[in-house]
């Protein structure tokens, strides 16, 4: 056992520093290398056909007047997402919509692009009210 071997060492100490450096190295290596398995690229709407079948993210704004619900009471939704370059993609999402989701809101979708239907099938929908915290001062001044 280690206990015995360290007992025999003249100064009574052990080379713990080496082990620490080793442990830190291993943890660091594992963290840094495993990130490539989990990173998800953001793709613009125009590049989506090139990334069909791959799991990606698209960020943009929910187009005005483009939100269709599948039927009353159903939670599926299809909408047009306008990305930062101004290109549009149709997105279908099944699941509970976040509260902040509405026309004009900023949204991020995660999923795959289906080239045959030219539609993005999202498994995750995040939305953020454009003025969530910094409620526009302009609106406050206009009101007066």
């Amino acid at each position: 056992m280690d206990v015995d071997s360290s007992e025999r060492r003249p100064r009574g100490g052990i080379r713990i520093g080496i082990w620490i450096i080793l442990a830190v190295g291993v943890i660091g290596y594992l963290v840094v290398t495993s990130i490539s398995d989990f990173q998800l690229p953001y793709v613009s709407a125009a590049d989506l056909p090139g990334a069909s079948g791959r799991f990606v993210r698209v960020a943009g704004k929910v187009a005005m007047g483009g939100v269709e619900l599948d039927g009353p009471g159903d939670i599926s939704v299809t909408f047009a997402l306008i990305d930062e370059q101004g290109d549009t993609v149709r997105v279908e999402y099944r699941g509970v919509r976040p509260d902040a989701f509405r026309e004009g809101a900023q949204a991020v979708v995660e999923g795959t692009f289906d080239p045959s239907s030219r539609q993005f099938n999202a498994v995750l929908l995040q939305a953020k009210c454009p003025s969530k915290y910094e409620v526009g001062v302009a609106t406050a001044t206009q009101k007066s």
Partner: peptide, 26 residues
């Protein structure tokens, strides 16, 4: 002082430090 054994509270604490910092870094 120096740490005398791997099986001591000092060594366990050091190991705990490594894990905590590893977590923080990750």
């Amino acid at each position: 002082n120096r740490i005398e054994s791997y099986l001591s509270r000092e060594a366990v604490f050091l190991f705990n430090n490594v894990v905590l910092l590893g977590l923080a870094f990750a």
